[in-house]
Amino acid sequence: MDQNFDIIVLGGGPAGMTAALYAAKANLKCLIVETSICGGLVNSTYVVENFPTYESIHGMELMERFQKQLVGAGVIIEDVAEIEKIHLIGNIKKVYTDTGIYTSRAVIIASGRQPIPIDLDQEVDQIHYCSICDGTAYKNKDVLVVGGGNSGFDEALYLITLGVKSLTLIEQADRFFAAKSVQKKLLAHKRVKAMHSISLIRCNLENGQLTNVEVDTQHGNKTLFVDGIFVFMGQKPSTDMFKSILPLDEQGYIVTDENMMTSIAGVFAAGDVRQKQIRQITTAMSDGTIASLCAERYLRIR
């Protein structure tokens, strides 16, 4: 494989893939380096219903279609890459992975976010972060979903289709953050109970098997009898590898200007990894578009 590119995109979610598509359409040689698989968090979304053009589509299917379009446009993708080192200062940027060293004159960081693990000082085998992966074992069983955002409600809907006996959804904050339409859809099921202002404090196990959990209801503790727990407590930015290189905000997001430029010449950031208020597939794509066109301009005028 050619190791030299015009643009290297770090991360293959909607922002990174959009940036790569625009780069390819501008006849730039573009590589996506992805530590997992292309698609980002959308892959974990069972159903996407707010993406223009599709009334309803599985997240993974949407991203597979996108990846196919990229490959057709000539974008090179290195997935399940282990990034060992990154050199961003200077005219030539370098990305060291387990399969080679790649160079480019511009880099677009689109490394996105990753799920926040639950903060419990316990090892519990029945705590899960993916209902599609681990939900089947809970048919006719009682499950707890932690997190009242879009992910929590979306994954809860999937668990209902698997035939769980009961589903209790709890949210720590004083309201649910999921879109009203998704809330309505889930709460229409008789097997579902959803409560906010409640947090999980302890799991009780017998011979390694979860028997019940204790929750803090703000009016005292309460016991819930559940067989498994699915956690969707939001995400944190995947920026550990940039900590010492780029200015990050207090939460760890990369700070850019409106053209997606970071403080390092030739380094741009796009999508969920960037400091901003709204994080949707469509806004990630907008960021990716801007980052790519500005990177193209940067390469052209230098």
Binding site: I37, S44, Y46, M60, I132, C133, T136
Partner: peptide, 17 residues
């Protein structure tokens, strides 16, 4: 694997390597 399981797809890429 399951058809819509993202970690399965990820794992299959690992298997390719």
């Amino acid at each position: 694997y399951k058809k819509l399981c993202p970690h399965c797809k990820n794992m299959e890429k690992v298997l390719l390597k």
